[in-house]
Design a binder for these strands. Structure first.
Lengths: 253, 253
DNA sequence: ACCTGAACACCGTTCAAGT
DNA sequence: ACCTGAACACCGTTCAAGT
């Protein structure tokens, strides 16, 4: 009864944060009572066009105005389908996650989880939205739920308890998200190919300016720190994670 | 020689991305030739005032204009100390990391690393900048380098090779960063206390709307997924990480 | 019912002109 | 050398008025 009161209050209360679970829930309800016209605007067309803008001009150029212009309408028209720019970004963030392919190899949970993590990383890095912009807003979208369902299945079959499977799934998503958002050398639009090299040179320059006495470990391992590639670090971190999961399985003494 | 050419070219080439290693390096050079006046503006005063704005009104209210007004100067004056709003955010992001206390317990590497991770999480969550905004721009700042030095020391003393210590340190930072930026139920400024409860209710509502046949695992573990607290998930993920590190130590067969 | 021109209330950033 | 008024070129969002 009090649960029901909570449910119905959600419609009228403070508007839900774009990308939050409640926002996705309310949006799917609102979508059902929508009656689209042929040839008219639609959320999908808006998202598709937004991706074009992002790919060609980057996040800062993604304005309600630029998307409307590309669609040949007034910017005010978009507000019939999205309530704010933040909602647009939330929709894009989950839409892009739809590119993640979920498949079993038949060679055991560890191989499958590893493949899933690599696939997540590939999609997050190749998508035109900066990882930092999309991540916090995509966690509860339909495509992410699909991924959660898949990961839960893998971990349960591996032998984890339901509770362990849930926690491990969330941890996996957080880890992949974290490892894709830091350290992409010069993030953003002005991406000339020199990115990686410039990043390493800048780091070298930074370490050289440090007082050696205060940073003995960085002095000793600095070259490795400078040279560490994001791919290698991810591979290492993924192994740590998988080893950790293995140590939680019933069989492992 | 070609290395020297690279170094000197960096001053004149494309401006460095705020928060990137090169940006921090160039900034520390520029800072040395600055000659501040008594009672005048300074980067520190600007950062301090920005934190006030953030604490009281949130990220969207943090404008060059609002900071200038609070300082009693023209907004144009800030551009003598920062080149853009993004630079301001990068400075804030690292400044806040200075609150992270680095200390040894004397009870072994695992206890120390665990304390460090909890301390990072505490500071990142209590700082007024949304984790997603600060993270990608703080990785190479002076306070983060201090933390890297400390973590490298712990992992080297634990028995990891320099290469393993470097990769493990980066992985740790990425993991803590990732786990703090997803799933803070309704991120942002409108934070009333009901945050967590509303987030759980929204998630419940979302799962209830799912076709049960397509989501068997979520159907079975849905309650656990809805109820999982961010703290518990972090504790679990941290254990996975530490178990993974343990399995890489020389002693572990 | 849908769409949109025009306006509102802002932004970040620049620069010529002041002290 | 430092500071700043005023302007430039934008934003997201709203809403009355149209079809």
């Amino acid at each position: 009864m009090s649960a029901e009161a909570t449910m119905s209050a959600e419609e009228t209360a403070v508007p839900a944060d774009p990308g939050s679970a409640r926002w996705w829930a309310e949006r799917s309800v609102a979508d059902r009572r929508r009656r689209p016209r042929a040839g008219g605007l639609s959320t999908e067309r808006i998202v598709e066009t937004s991706l074009e803008v992002l790919r060609e001009e980057g996040l800062e150029a993604l304005t309600v105005r630029s998307v409307a212009e590309r669609l040949g309408t007034s910017n005010a028209s978009l507000y019939r389908h999205i309530a704010s720019r933040d909602e647009l970004i939330a929709l894009i963030a989950d839409h892009v996650m739809g590119d993640i392919r979920l498949k079993r190899t038949g060679r055991g949970w560890r191989v499958d989880v590893e493949a899933l993590m690599l696939e997540m990383r590939r999609v997050i890095l190749s998508q035109p939205l900066p990882p930092s912009a999309g991540r916090s807003q995509s966690g509860s979208g339909p495509n992410m739920l699909r991924l959660v369902e898949f990961a839960l299945t893998l971990f349960r079959e591996a032998g984890l308890t339901d509770r362990q499977a849930v926690y491990t799934t969330i941890t996996m998503i957080e880890f992949v998200g974290g490892s894709t958002s830091i350290r992409r050398s010069p993030a953003g639009r002005g991406s000339n190919g020199v990115a990686g090299a410039a990043g390493a040179a800048g780091l070298r320059q930074l370490l050289d300016g440090l007082p050696a006495d205060d940073f003995p470990a960085l002095g000793a391992a600095g070259n490795l720190y400078t040279a560490a590639s994001a791919d290698d670090v991810f591979t290492h971190g993924m192994a740590l994670f998988l080893d950790g999961v293995t140590s939680q399985l019933p069989g492992s003494q």
